[in-house]
Simulated assay, not measured.
Amino acid sequence: MKGRASPQRTILVDGKPLPELLDEAMIRAVVHGFYADVRRDPLIGPIFNAALAPDEWPAHLDKLCDFWSATLLRTDRYGGRPLPPHLRIPGLGEDHFRRWLSLFRDTVQRLCPADVAALFMDRALRIAHSFRLAVAFSRGEDTTTIAPIAGDGL
Rank of each mutant, 00 (worst) to 15 (best):
M1S: 08
K2H: 03
A5P: 08
A5F: 12
S6R: 14
S6G: 05
S6N: 07
P7I: 10
I11D: 04
V13H: 09
D14T: 00
G15C: 09
K16V: 12
K16Q: 15
P17H: 09
L18S: 02
E20D: 15
L22E: 00
L22P: 03
D23R: 09
D23C: 10
A25E: 02
A25K: 14
A25P: 07
R28W: 00
R28P: 01
A29I: 05
V30T: 10
V31M: 08
F34C: 13
A36N: 12
D41C: 11
L43E: 00
L43C: 12
L43D: 07
I44M: 05
P46Y: 08
P46F: 02
I47E: 03
A50Q: 04
A51D: 03
L52H: 02
P54L: 11
E56S: 11
E56W: 02
W57R: 11
D62W: 10
F67L: 11
F67V: 04
S69W: 01
A70E: 10
R74H: 13
R77E: 04
Y78S: 03
Y78R: 06
P82V: 15
L83S: 09
P85C: 06
P85R: 01
H86R: 13
H86M: 01
L87M: 05
I89P: 01
G91V: 02
G93N: 01
D95Q: 07
R98D: 02
W100H: 03
L101C: 08
L101N: 00
S102P: 00
L103K: 04
R105G: 04
V108R: 03
R110T: 12
L111V: 12
C112K: 10
C112S: 13
P113D: 14
P113L: 10
D115H: 15
A117N: 14
M121S: 09
M121E: 09
D122V: 03
L125V: 11
R126S: 14
S130I: 13
L133E: 12
A134E: 04
A136C: 10
F137D: 13
F137W: 11
F137Q: 12
S138A: 15
D142H: 06
T143G: 15
T144C: 13
T145R: 12
I146N: 02
I146Q: 01
I146G: 01
A147S: 10
A147L: 15
A147R: 13
A147P: 03
G151Q: 05
D152F: 02
D152Q: 07
L154Q: 01
